[in-house]
Each structure stands twice: as C-alpha cells, then as structure tokens.
Design a protein around this nucleic acid. Structure first.
Lengths: 342, 342
DNA sequence: CTGTTAGCGCTTTCAT
DNA sequence: ATGAAAGCGCTAACAG
C-alpha cells in the first residue's frame, strides 16, 4: 500500500519500470516467456513498492477463487477440529484458502452457509451434515455448476458426490458382538438423530449383532438423545431405573458414554462387572476415564486429509474426470477395561 | 448459473426486465429509493434465473471483502476449537466470512499465512501467535493499511493492537499459593516456550507465589517442554527421579498435567497426598481424571466471541475510532481433589 | 425513482 | 519477449 493510502497495482509497477502491465502480470506469475532479468526486476520492485496481489481482481478475471468451502455442524468437538486441521494442512499446502462455517446443527443455517459459499464462488465444498437436515437441495446448485461437493462423516447420497466415511454398520456390529461375547445380554444403545447415517448405521449394526446372537431386540433399551455429556448424565438416570438393570451400554459416541459411565459409577454400579460400557470415536478422554473406555478408533485428521486431497485432485487434474468414488476409511475396535469382564 | 454454463449477472436480469443494471444492483441491495414493486420483481427474477451474487466483483469495486482472517497455532485443541467456534458464530451473524489458517506453531508458516490474508484483503485479522514466533513484522503491513489486528491468548505488544487475554500471572500466582497452602513446599512447574506471554506470565506468577511464601525458587524443579500429553508422560519420569520427591506439580496446561498425573499414579504415587497436581485451562477431561484436576477455568468460546465482537465493532462503527483497548477476561481457580490435602 | 458511465485490478488473446 | 486493449461483474457518482 502506498503512503497515500491506496493499493499499489501492477500498473504502478509497470509505470515505474516503463514496461506494460501485462508484462508485470506475467512476470509475477513466473510466465515462461518473460525475460529472466525483467522478472527479477519486477519482483524486486513489487517488493520495494509494497505491492500485494489482489485476489479479487484475479478471481474475477479468471473466474476462480482458489478457495475451498467447508460446512460442518460444529467446530468445537475433538473429532471435528481434527478433521478441520487435516483439511487445512492439505488445502494450504496446495495453495488454496479455506472458507469455513458451521451450521450449528440446523438445516436453516446450513442453507445460508451454502449460499455464502456460492457467493464466494468456492471451487469445491466439503460438507458434514447438520443434525436435522432433511433434504440437501441447497447443494444442488453446486452440482449444476460442476463445483465438486464431497460429503464426509455425516453423509448422504446426492447425485454422484463422493462420500468419505467409515463402515459404521460394521464397527457397531463388532463392538456389540464384543459386548455380547463378554456376557452382556441386555445392552442399552444410546444414539442420536437416526436421520444421520452415522447413527442409523451404528444402530443397525447393533441390531444385527443382537439378531445374529439370538438376542431379541428390545425397544425399551434404546435411548435417543443429542449425545452430549449432559445427555449422558440424564441417560444414566434412565438406565438406573430400568428393571432389571441392563448389563451393557453401547453409546454412539464417547462423550456421552463417559458422562453416563461416571454417573452410574457414582451411583455405586460396578463397571464393567455389573454394567459394561462401549463408546465410539476414540476420544482422548477414553484413556483417562476409569475404567478406560472400549471404543472404535476413527480419527478425524486422516478423514480431513483424505477429503481435502480428493478435492485438490479434482481441482488439479482437470483431465482425470474419473467418476466420483467414495472412500470407506478404516476403523478399529479398541477393547479396554470398561467392557472386559473375562 | 445459466444452462450454457455461464453465470447469470445483473445485466442478464436487467435485460430481461428491461431496466438498467444499476437498478438491479440497487434492488438487490435493498436500496431505499427503488420502487418496492421493482425490488420484488428483481428479487423474483433473480431467483428464477438462478442468479448468484458475485462477491469478487463487488469486493473489487468496493475495495472491501467482508471477510475476517484468523491465524492460530493449531485448530485441533479443545481450547482453540472453542475459540474458533465463538468467533465463527459472531462473524457469521454479522454477515462476514471467515478465512482460517493455522501456523502449525512455526513462524515461517505464520508469515505465509499472513501474506495470504493480505492477498485476500481480509478486513481484520485475529491472531494467536505460534510457539516460536520471535518478531511480528509480518503484521505491520496490516497496520499500515489500517486493517485492525487483534491478538488473543498468545499475544504480544504491537503498535496499538488490542490484546485479549486473561491475567495469566495472577491465575498462576493464585493456583501456586493454593498448592502451598495445601502444604506443598517443593512444587514442580511444567511450562512451554517462555517466549509466549501465556507461559512466561504463568511462570512468573508461580515464582512470585513462592517468593511471597518464603520458599526459595529452585531451578531444577522447572520442566520446559511442549506441553503435549506425550511430554507429560516424559515429565513424569523426570519427576519420579527427583530426590527428594517433589510434593506438588503445577503444569501450564491440563493435557500435560493429566498425562503426567496418570503416569506417576501408575508408578504408585498417591495423589494428592504424596504429590498434588494443578493444571490450567479447565479442559473437560479434568472432571474425568481421578482424582479430578484442580485448574484455572478459562473458556475459549467466550474469548473468541469477545475478540470477534470487538473486530466487528471496529469494522461497523466507523465513527468510534476509539483508541484500541485491550481486554482482560476473567479466569477462576477451580479447586478439585487433585490438590486437596486438607 | 431510474439510467449512464466510468472504473475497481488483473489476465489474456492477439499483435508485433 | 513485450504491448495494446478488452472485459470479468459490480457499484456509485452524477444526472435527470
């Protein structure tokens, strides 16, 4: 910025060097057919004059933004901040910027966020759906514009958008089998909004495991809440009032499982002898709580990286118009003391 | 976007309605002196034609971006993701966008992030410094351009930039006094890079408390590391080898304190009887670990909100060229079992 | 209340 | 290897 308060432009540099703005533009972009010395001179002068590239002008002209949009339910969960960190690293290394917003779990805000992404002409959109999103028409305009949309974790089928997630059904199936193998026969399942694949699939995995082991599914053992710590504490009270007392709890996330476990423990229940526990996510807290919580390991950082790399590939290898392909990331059962009865 | 693959512009709308582009622009902006019906018609037509506002063109013309930049060391810590969530909410509600990047604790990346912020003409910048940033010249250009820069948490004096933080000295002083009052006489202090105010001030508070209680400061009781969980485990080994064994530990963050505590506990040390513990941040895990960790409550969400609101105020109340003012947020000592020996 | 016009700063043919 | 010129889409005087 010049001292008169105005931005230095390539024209200012051009005038000073008595060359054309076109050459300055090319020089700054390291265009092959610009004289090496001219380039060097342009860079030096730009630096000296305090020139700063104007992305708007460039974006307007080139009709692209070098920015990738991200819409997530909340930023402040251990899982999601890991995802974002992974995305940011990949995106930044590829010289793209990140435009981030949170839907705060409401579809209404998700829609307005999507609109802002459109106005800012993001070149790609990474989305994890809000708790109560019922339809995804607000993402169709991106598809019409051929702007890639990739869903991760909380996904949904939409045209040919790639989905990045784990096999929630299988992971839940395995963790439930594990509880059964430890001798549990009445297993409570705490879950979230079944509209979301992550909760629906885990619920289905739970039911399938019961079925495969010949345990009848009991509706009254299912608790639906928002999976927060507070909800976990409330769930503990519900569980304590069930007769007979259940002998296992599989919560669809760790935060809720841990709060619930602490509360029933407080009430004098022995864990895992009387009540075995299992969660989901492998939150760091699992290894702090006593007994350590059995869970499904499923790290966000990697998911963020994978989603972002896929996006960067789409945007970079213009040729590879490969059909959109979804990715199922690995997850693993981590057995810890909270469920070990043998 | 039209079906031919080109964006619909205000000119397309203007042509269709046989009015001028200026009127369309005004209508879309809800300009007062545009006929109500015309406005309604413009909106309806824009909607029908699939028009989407082009921020670049607008930004270029208006020389403003309606975007606020954020540079933080890492996105994936409980504290920082809370801060970001608070910022995002305020910024989004004020109809600004968020451009986020992480320095990954290096000054080099902080500099390149700052450069990207400049290119994208952010209207304001919120910064929490990287671990090893030694000078902040890379932010001077923003000041020259009168782009407000606000530091939070990990702050530094720079021109008149507002600083948002807590009284780290006082909080550390109080928590150390508390340990002393519980009978601790040899208190280990685990800290991070003393270049950063947060660690330096806490260290100073610790020393002052010792001094005020007539306990000589002992250099060999100070452990400097990166305050990660892994570092906490290592610190535990160092502590166990100290003779005589210390009787208290004050760690500059909770994550490190908890890892350390779990490790010494594992080694058979009784907490708090043999070794009392205190951390900093009030991470949710404090209430899960046994015994619960004494700490300083200091929530990020509020800090993010305060920083963002101040920024929005600067950007909105053009008149209030009030001198930059820093804010010291409240923090509170939370005494829990890990330090209660009486 | 509405239209005309001149850019914002950059990129990119098309020339030379 | 460099220049001239047009235009990306929007806004804000200014004029009426």
């Amino acid at each position: 910025m010049a001292d008169n308060g105005k931005d230095i432009t390539i024209y200012d540099i051009a005038k000073k060097l008595d060359i054309s703005a076109a050459t300055v533009s090319r020089g700054l972009q390291d265009h092959p057919r610009v004289n090496k010395n001219t380039k060097k001179l342009i860079r030096k002068t730009a630096e000296e004059m305090g020139y700063h590239f104007n992305s708007f002008a460039s974006n307007l002209r080139k009709k692209k933004s070098k920015v990738i949009g991200v819409i997530v339910p909340r930023l402040n969960s251990n899982f999601m901040s890991d995802v974002i960190a992974g995305i940011e690293k990949v995106v930044n290394n590829a010289n793209y910027g990140l435009f981030i917003s949170q839907s705060l779990e409401t579809m209404q805000r998700e829609i307005s966020n999507a609109d802002a992404m459109l106005n800012n002409r993001v070149e790609g959109l990474l989305v994890s759906l809000a708790y109560n999103t019922t339809d995804v028409d607000h993402f169709r305009e991106f598809i019409r514009r051929k702007t890639p949309v990739i869903f991760f974790d909380r996904v949904t089928e939409l045209e040919n958008c790639p989905l990045i997630h784990i096999d929630n059904f299988k992971a839940a199936y395995e963790i439930t089998l594990h509880l059964i193998d430890q001798g549990c026969k009445r297993i409570v399942h705490i879950t979230g909004n079944l509209l979301r694949n992550v909760y629906k699939d885990r619920f289905d995995g739970y039911k399938k495991a019961l079925e495969d082991r010949g345990i009848p599914f009991d509706d009254s053992l299912v608790i639906v809440n928002d999976l927060s710590a507070a909800a976990g504490t409330v769930a503990a009270q519900q569980i304590l009032q069930m007769t007979p007392l259940p002998d296992g709890v599989f919560s669809s996330n760790d935060i809720c499982a841990i709060a619930c476990m602490l509360a029933v423990k407080q009430a004098g229940i022995k864990i895992p002898q009387q009540l075995a526990f299992a969660g989901f996510n492998n939150d760091p807290t699992c290894c702090v709580v006593e007994p350590n919580l059995t869970t499904v390991n499923y790290k966000g950082y990697e998911m963020g990286e994978v989603a972002a790399k896929m996006m960067i590939n789409y945007l970079t290898d213009k040729d590879s118009v490969q059909p959109a392909h979804s990715v199922i990331l690995r997850s693993e059962l981590l057995v810890r003391e909270s469920s070990l009865r043998k």
